[in-house]
Design a binder for these strands. Structure first.
Lengths: 187, 187
DNA sequence: AAGTCCATGTAAACGGTTACATGATTGT
DNA sequence: ACAATCATGTAACCGTTTACATGGACTT
């Protein structure tokens, strides 16, 4: 078993062959909206995948100055990716600095707390709008559509659900805080 | 500005003084359900916080063999924590290996995909039940209750919302996959 | 006798981010 | 001239995880 990054790259290459640069572009916007990586991580990982026989490359004369390497997934790569995909993962530990903030939110004035949550709400609204836009572009492919498209769509759905949940939480918390604020200013 | 771990520790010490060991226990179950750390990270961080004047310790004769250090937050620590809490954070980048899996889910048979999502669903159900139990123990303190309790309760609410969202997503995906499975087996 | 709890630390390895390094082509 | 795009790599740093290290008191 290797790292999530390795499987993310295999997942991209399973859709179509790419250069390291192309993979960098594709992974800068999160793959499936839930993983990012930059080129300094991608190039060494491609080398590792290759020495494990999961990808291979052919040198092509691209638009760049140096010859570029077009990577494609091998049969072994396909097999290992397929196997990993259905192994049941350990429950993921969620990390959120925002929740660390929330845990200490009682230390500040309700007004300041409201200000913070309002801005968090804006962030989630913006991201949800961004997702909704891509959703519209997708045209909601059912499982009937191209399988790879449906899989990407499923991750988009997950992103939208989680942003909606975050928005609902912001609204709930704002209601609680504003109630307290109102009471406090009447005291 | 320091790391989230530093603020997490300050957030715990703002509630009550603790030894490093006690903080390790408190942070093994995630603080606010959204951050964990182990002792090997906590002891050095406490030393760093102390050299920055944000915490101080008194040596006490505890139950252990070696003298233990009881840490408490300083006025400066309180001030820095309060300031950090309301600084608006950069939008957090979400990382989820499960979504990397989902992105490549089209490579496996619908049956295998269903099996995976069913087990994911179980994990989320279990975690939600765990949260619900703690929710019952909390007795849902409004903002009227003790402020520190309300803040912890707010993070619990966020955890419950996000688990509910994950469950809904699992159910949606199972519906889609089972529909396709049924079609496929009729082909 | 063995295991758990209290209690504190260090060291090695690993993954991710940021910065350093190079350079040709195309468009403003 | 200047910036952006294509194109590949290395190095330094930082946070997290896992393992190493020690050892007294109490319970089974």
């Amino acid at each position: 078993m290797r790292t999530a990054l390795g499987y993310a790259l295999l997942g991209l290459l399973a859709r179509r062959p790419s250069t390291g640069y192309d993979l960098t572009v594709r992974m800068h916007r999160p793959i499936g909206y839930f993983w990012t990586a930059s080129h300094s991580q991608i190039y060494p990982e491609l080398a590792r995948l290759q020495s494990a026989g999961l990808v291979r490359h052919t040198v092509v004369d691209g638009a760049g100055p140096r010859p570029s390497k077009l990577y494609e997934i091998t049969a072994a790569g396909h097999a290992e990716l397929r196997e990993w995909v259905t192994t049941v993962p350990e429950p993921e530990s969620v990390r959120s600095a925002t929740m660390v903030r929330t845990y200490s939110l009682w230390l500040v004035e309700p007004d300041a707390a409201v200000g913070l949550v309002e801005r968090l709400r804006e962030q989630h609204t913006r991201r949800l709008a961004d997702y909704a836009e891509q959703d519209a572009g997708f045209g909601s492919p059912g499982v009937a559509g191209r399988p790879a498209d449906f899989a990407a769509y499923a991750t988009l759905r997950a992103g939208m659900r989680s942003e909606q949940a975050a928005l609902e939480w912001c609204d709930w918390l704002l209601g609680e805080l504003r109630g307290a604020d109102g009471q406090a200013s009447k005291d």
